[in-house]
Amino acid sequence: MFTVNSARRVLALGATLVTTGVLSAALAPTPAAAAAVTVQATVDCGNFNSYGDTWDSFPIDPSISASPYGAGGTPSIVSVPITNALRLTQTLPSGTTSVSVSAMCSRGHVYDFFGSADSVTIPAGVTTVTAAWKCYTAPVNPGPWRTDCYLQSASYS
């Protein structure tokens, strides 16, 4: 009789512990998902070369690159009043650690290509990055034109 009651008590205690563990796991609070990062980037050509003529013009084919997940879409692009700069706005996936902007400031040559682009490191907890890039084009001997973009400023919020 004593062993039957002890066995029942052990089984009841085991069932209680299992139920408590399952409920604890099911009802435990989950951490909030990290917020996405919104990038507001301004890109401008410091010089522009079109078919050998130079003048101030809007950047061509501006794009945003992000690490480690990529930009994940196409930015919205608007012109900045009274300048030939463009403003790009894009929401990047949460966990994005850096962003860069590239554009072309030449056209009409046999070869026009994108060069390097400085990147901005995004600190943890930041939800908005506002940054400006200035791009310059130059010939690379024996003749293609390469555009490199340099970070001018960056702020976070």
Rank of each mutant, 00 (worst) to 15 (best):
A32S: 03
P144G: 13
A131H: 02
F113C: 07
V37P: 02
A117M: 02
T74K: 11
Y136D: 04
P81T: 08
C149P: 08
S76V: 14
G95T: 02
S63Q: 09
T128R: 06
T74N: 13
A41F: 03
G46D: 13
V4M: 10
P142Q: 10
P29K: 06
G115S: 07
P59Y: 03
P59A: 04
V120S: 05
T147Q: 11
T54W: 08
M104H: 05
A85Q: 02
C149S: 12
L88A: 07
G52I: 03
V4R: 14
F48D: 05
I64G: 05
A85N: 04
G14F: 15
P29F: 07
A25K: 09
F113L: 14
S6E: 15
L27Y: 12
M1S: 14
W133S: 00
Y150K: 11
V43E: 07
A103E: 11
R146H: 06
T20F: 14
F113P: 00
S157L: 08
V99I: 08
S94D: 11
S6W: 15
F2P: 07
A66F: 08
A25H: 14
S116W: 02
V99E: 02
C105W: 08
S106I: 05
A26Q: 12
A12L: 15
A85T: 02
S67Q: 10
T96D: 07
F48G: 00
C105F: 09
L11R: 15
P29C: 03
V120Y: 02
S67E: 11
T127H: 04
S63V: 10
D148V: 02
P62V: 01
S106K: 03
F2M: 11
P31V: 12
V22P: 06
A33W: 00
A124Y: 04
T130L: 01
R8F: 14
L27A: 12
Y111L: 15
F113E: 14
N141P: 08
T20K: 00
A138Y: 15
V99K: 01
T20H: 01
P123L: 07
A103Y: 06
S79I: 05
G46M: 09
V126H: 05
